[in-house]
Amino acid sequence: MASLPAPPSSTAPAPLADVAFTVGRDVVVQRLTGARRRVVLRVGGDGPDDLALRHDGRRLAVADERGVRVVDLAHPARAARLPLPRGTFADGVAWSPDGRGLTIADAGVSGPTTWVDCHATRPYRCHVRRSRVVAGPVPSPDGRSTVTIEERGPRRTGGHAATTVTAELVLHRGGRRRVLDRASTVRTGRTTVTSAIGPPLWTAGGLWWDVSSQRVVDEGGASSSEDAHQERRLRDDGAVESFAPQTADGTPVTALGVLPDGTAWGEVDAATNRHEVVLIPADGPATRTGLRYRIPDQLLLGPTADARFAVVDRRIGPQQEVDALRLAGAGGRLGRVLLRSRGPRPAIDLR
């Protein structure tokens, strides 16, 4: 069984928060070292729709029914509201990799790929980006490349089967773009196979991504379906290959994210709702961490900045939901409850 990674050393300025969460209409931040929590903002309505804590733990973006505010955690009373275009409904918010900008998912305009990009420092400026990019850009560790998932309008290709390309995974490097993979819908007789591309991950072993597919067979009034997925990666020689990460006993695993040192992490594929976190090296078998969680009663938030995994225990009542955050220690054992987020729509975000 693998140990969870040791926290990396850092000379960066100390963060002001490791986690942001909601208690009713209050937005609260705190360090995970036991420091006291602070209320930095109060919002109206049912509370925030989304929170995004910048990776350095010094600024926070809060989306609610009135728009998006940026909070400098050193001076929370000076929260600034972004000048979003009229009619924008902020459904989600994320910091850019360099921490200088924000991208807001706009549910107020038709289509899933309408975005609003904003400068997150004064003078605040925002503009609508009607882009086909639905994920990314995700920069490589050396900063020389980015990768995006881009939506494509229905485009049929030739052959014996009716193939419609729906999305492409694109590598951008040196001003050039290369399509690495495609998601599509393929119809052959009574069989339809639909594929989708999962979020790209820059790991110590290079660029990885997941391709999931569903095969549906129309059997005359009834239908049967079969789900499958593949992990794919970009090799050093530029070739794309499929691979099958698994534990030493041959159990398949799915990559979900990357730790600060570049190690991929994921979970054991389980037929039940009980999952286990694994670490996936560039070569060799995946190793079990001992951290297990069950859905829908528990939610894996992923690793913190110091590479500890966070799990939320979820309790849903008639009027509100309560999410309790715990961190995994040695052997994957979950520690005590560090905080509770309460409300009609509780939100928690880790840096």
Rank of each mutant, 00 (worst) to 15 (best):
V170S: 07
V170Q: 14
V170P: 15
V170C: 15
L171R: 15
H172T: 13
H172C: 10
R173P: 06
R173I: 09
G174Q: 12
G174T: 15
G174Y: 11
G174I: 14
G175M: 14
G175E: 07
R176C: 04
R176M: 10
R177H: 15
R178T: 12
R178W: 13
R178E: 13
V179I: 15
V179C: 12
L180P: 08
D181R: 07
R182C: 02
R182H: 08
R182N: 05
R182L: 10
A183W: 05
A183S: 12
A183Q: 05
S184K: 14
S184F: 13
T185Q: 11
T185R: 12
T185S: 14
T185F: 07
T185E: 14
T185L: 11
V186D: 11
R187D: 04
R187S: 09
T188G: 05
T188R: 08
T188P: 00
T188M: 09
G189W: 04
G189Q: 10
G189S: 10
T191I: 11
T192S: 08
T192W: 03
V193F: 10
V193C: 07
T194V: 13
T194Q: 11
T194H: 12
T194S: 09
S195E: 08
S195T: 14
S195K: 04
A196I: 02
A196F: 07
I197Q: 04
I197S: 06
I197M: 00
I197F: 05
I197K: 01
I197W: 02
I197G: 08
G198A: 04
G198S: 06
P199H: 04
P199G: 04
P200M: 03
P200T: 00
L201S: 01
L201P: 06
L201D: 02
W202E: 02
W202V: 03
W202P: 01
T203M: 03
T203L: 07
T203D: 03
T203P: 05
T203H: 05
G206M: 03
G206W: 02
L207F: 01
W208N: 02
W208A: 01
W208L: 10
W209P: 09
W209I: 00
W209E: 06
D210K: 03
D210T: 02
D210C: 00
D210Y: 00
